[in-house]
Amino acid sequence: MSFTFSNENLLKIEALKKRYPSPKALTLPCLWMVEYQEGYISMDAIEEIAIHTDTPPMEVYRVATFYTMFHLEPQDKRTVQVCKTLSCKLCGSDEILAHLNKKDLNIVHAECLGSCGTAPVMQIDDVNYENLTIENVDEILKALK
């Protein structure tokens, strides 16, 4: 499967190049563009990013695998990041996790999502859902379907 950036993304890349001292800086922005465009990052996309960033493909791959938010394979289920770090744990994230694990979802154990004051919390499609209870988790998921 070959990969090409959408025209919109190509324009973004050109605009971003002017904002950085080196094209290599565009590695993370390009990876994000691919993630949103395709839902995951394929090896073909990595080679394409390598051209735009003037970086060896292997290096782009090394970078993509370092950061936990990039998917390197297509996702067939909805991804739900559930925070399991201390403040959330103290406020009951274990029950939320146990409840979510029973569902047909791709559950990711996230580290602190920066919503410790409104724990427990989960993130779906870039949005934090806070003050979770078993009841409102079900409502949130239903509303998203």
Binding site: T85, L86, S87, E111, C112, G114, S115, C116, G117
Partner: peptide, 10 residues
């Protein structure tokens, strides 16, 4: 801002 317990910059 990733230090657990920290959510001020946000």
């Amino acid at each position: 801002e990733s230090e657990p317990g920290t959510f001020k910059d946000r």
